[in-house]
Nucleic acid binder design. Structure first.
Ligand SMILES: [Mn+2]
Ligand SMILES: [Mn+2]
Ligand SMILES: [Zn+2]
Ligand SMILES: [Zn+2]
Lengths: 148, 148
DNA sequence: AGTACTATTGTTATTTTTCACAATAAGGAC
DNA sequence: GTCCTTATTGTGAAAAATAACAATAGTACT
């Protein structure tokens, strides 16, 4: 059977005493299928279609759990609120503070920095979804033209 | 008078129509004096000693405002909850997922990456308090010795 | 000092997120 | 399949964070 990789990961966690509940599977599946950032309540809504009386509490708890196990990524995307995403592909984000326009940054760009920090501190870093902020070219232009 | 730099910044904001309220000054002062990460409720508590009936709402609002204006920094420090800090010195953080041990990373370490991203994307980045996660040397050791 | 304008505050209500605890069900052993 | 252990769930309540709106008070101007 061709189960998605994240479900396989979840199965593997049983060796450590964790359990593969339908709630967990559903949440993971939602994130896999969407492949985008989702808020806890969006996840609750979508997963709730498969699991009749899924609780928000359970969603929060499992997002926490799955994030700790490295199956999902947390993103702080400016808005203040946290969103989640499948950990399928490693990438980071760059957001414009003004207009909200965003660009993905794939992990290779950060690799040299990660290596540098690892060498310097002895930590083993994990590639956890960093968000950078700045001003996009368009917005920077507007600022400049406004000046004169 | 030797007012702290951040109060000067706040004064400067009046040119843009913003106001320097005692609540704002108190919040900023608390962060300056502590020089550490503080949660909104801690800030409310401390600033409340100067401003008799300061509201939590006002604290949240002003932390938001001050962050947007670049006077305070937001940090996502693993715990899930957000903490704030004076923007006096530019630095970033590295946390151990296991034991919580943390190291400061000063911004020079990231400067090459920032330049790289700026060149590649055209964005002008701001140096906003990035938090990295990983496993510290001690915890990595324990993991290894446990294996055998 | 007094006035006018409006950014900011406190109040109240709502939403989002976390907690504690008893009831449930996943997974291993037989 | 049945039994046992305990990780995980739902429930109910608390805490943290946000929103709407009228009352307040900074600031510029006279
Ligand atoms: Mn992402
Ligand atoms: Mn910091
Ligand atoms: Zn922009
Ligand atoms: Zn550690």
């Amino acid at each position: 059977m061709s189960e998605p990789a994240s479900i396989q990961h979840l199965l593997a966690l049983r060796a450590q005493g964790f359990r593969m509940t339908p709630q967990r599977v559903a949440i993971l599946r939602v994130l896999d299928e969407c492949g985008c950032h989702l808020s806890p309540s969006e996840i609750h809504q979508r997963a709730g279609e498969m699991i009749p009386n899924l609780t928000e509490t359970t969603v929060y708890r499992n997002l926490d759990f799955l994030a700790q196990q490295g199956l999902v990524l947390i993103a702080h995307v400016g808005s203040g609120r946290i969103v989640y995403e499948s950990a399928a592909h490693h990438h980071h984000h760059l957001y414009c503070r003004h207009c909200g326009f965003s660009v993905d940054i794939n992990h290779e760009e950060l690799a040299p920095l990660y290596k540098h920090i690892q060498d310097k501190t002895g930590f083993i870093l994990d590639t956890s979804h960093v968000t950078f902020f700045g001003v996009c070219p368009q917005c920077a232009n507007k600022e400049n033209t406004k000046e004169n």
